[in-house]
Simulated scan of single mutants.
Amino acid sequence: MMAAEAGSAKNTLAAYRSDLTLASDFLDRRLGAASVADLSRLGEHWLALSRSSVARKSAALRRFFAFLADEGLRADDPGSALPRPGTARALPKTLEHADVDRLFAAIATRLARDPLDPNDLRLAALVELLYGSGLRATELVSLPRNAIAPDRPYLILRGKGGRERLVPISDRARAAVAAWRDTLAQDRAWLFPSGKAHLSRVRLYQLMKALAAEAGIPPERVSPHVLRHAFATHLLEGGADLRALQSMLGHADIATTEIYTHVDSARLVELVNTRHPLSDAQRMPRVDGTKGEA
Rank of each mutant, 00 (worst) to 15 (best):
Q246D: 10
R113A: 15
Q282K: 12
L135C: 07
V177K: 01
T274K: 15
L68D: 05
T21W: 12
P115G: 08
G86V: 09
F231G: 01
L143T: 04
L143G: 05
R89Y: 02
V127T: 06
A244I: 15
V167H: 00
L27F: 02
A48Y: 05
P115D: 06
A9I: 02
V226H: 03
I107W: 01
R203G: 00
W46E: 03
P150L: 02
A266R: 14
L47P: 01
H45N: 12
E258N: 10
A252V: 13
L268F: 11
R163C: 09
R275W: 10
A15P: 03
L39V: 02
E270D: 15
R17G: 13
A147L: 00
P224C: 04
L236D: 12
L130Q: 03
F64V: 07
A3E: 15
L95A: 09
A75Y: 01
H234S: 10
R221I: 07
R286K: 14
Q282E: 12
W46P: 04
G216S: 11
L191K: 08
L130H: 03
L135S: 01
M284K: 13
A106M: 06
F26E: 02
H251R: 07
L278E: 07
L199Y: 07
L199W: 07
A66T: 15
G7D: 01
A66M: 10
D264W: 04
L13Y: 11
E220D: 12
S170K: 06
V36Q: 12
A33K: 14
V36S: 11
D264N: 05
K196Q: 14
E214W: 06
A14K: 08
D25G: 07
A179H: 09
A66I: 12
W46D: 02
M248Q: 08
K196Y: 02
L211I: 12
S80N: 14
G238L: 04
H225V: 09
G86I: 11
A210E: 12
L13G: 11
G195Y: 08
A105R: 15
R228F: 12
A230Q: 04
